[in-house]
Amino acid sequence: MPLLFELTGIRFAYPGRPPVLNGLNLRLDEGERIALTGPNGAGKSTLLHIMVGLLRPQAGTVVAFGAPRRNEREFHEVRRRAGLVFQDPDDQLFCPTVAEDIAFGPLNLGRSTAEVLEIVDRTLARLDLSHLRDRVTHKLSGGEKRLVSLATVLAMEPDVLLLDEPGNGLDEKTRGRLVRILSELPHALVVISHDASFRRAVTSHQYRLHDGRIGPSATHVGGGAVEP
């Protein structure tokens, strides 16, 4: 199976603080679905940001989609192929309407308006959100915002989804809907989640981030694991 991500010896510290990541290694194969756990401040979000080049490690290498990635230009392709969904949908949804927010990514990739409108409709239909198409983003409910922010990333047609606490603050019903959606998606996944049942439902392995490194992999035993 082709390797999507290979991070080796990553060290990262925020200015004036001890390193949060120190000698971290991570491999992600195509179609692999992993969960990241660990205490608050263990560097889980930091790791996702390093994977798409929003943060640069002080040491170590990031190899993504078969090429080493070191500078902003090299990360442009990574960001298209690895869709990061932020923890707070209010950070992600900034366009006036849902359709425009979903169109934002594909338009940045230089697609034509006609193509983009088709992508918007297809993505909304895929997540069963077509009724939200022309709504104003800041007037959506918390659950709707979360699903729409997933849609804005899926519209870029990424190979990998990086989800930062996607189940956070969702009610039972919306959470169930998100689990169903994620289980049906064919993408490789890296999910940060503090919710054990959520992790079991959408991923097949979990790694624990501790002392700046990734601990041994634990495969979920038994039910719930979804094969991509």
């Binding site: 940001h49 798409v52 929003l54 442009h76 960001r79 298209r80 869709g83 990061l84 932020f86 707070d88 950070d91 992600q92 900034f94 934002f104 990514g105 940045n108 990739l109 804005t152 990333v153 870029m156």
Partner: peptide
């Protein structure tokens, strides 16, 4: 800053 980061993730130039 987070909004800009999210925008860059979606190819904002």
């Amino acid at each position: 800053e987070r909004i800009l980061a999210a925008m860059r993730c979606r190819g904002f130039q």
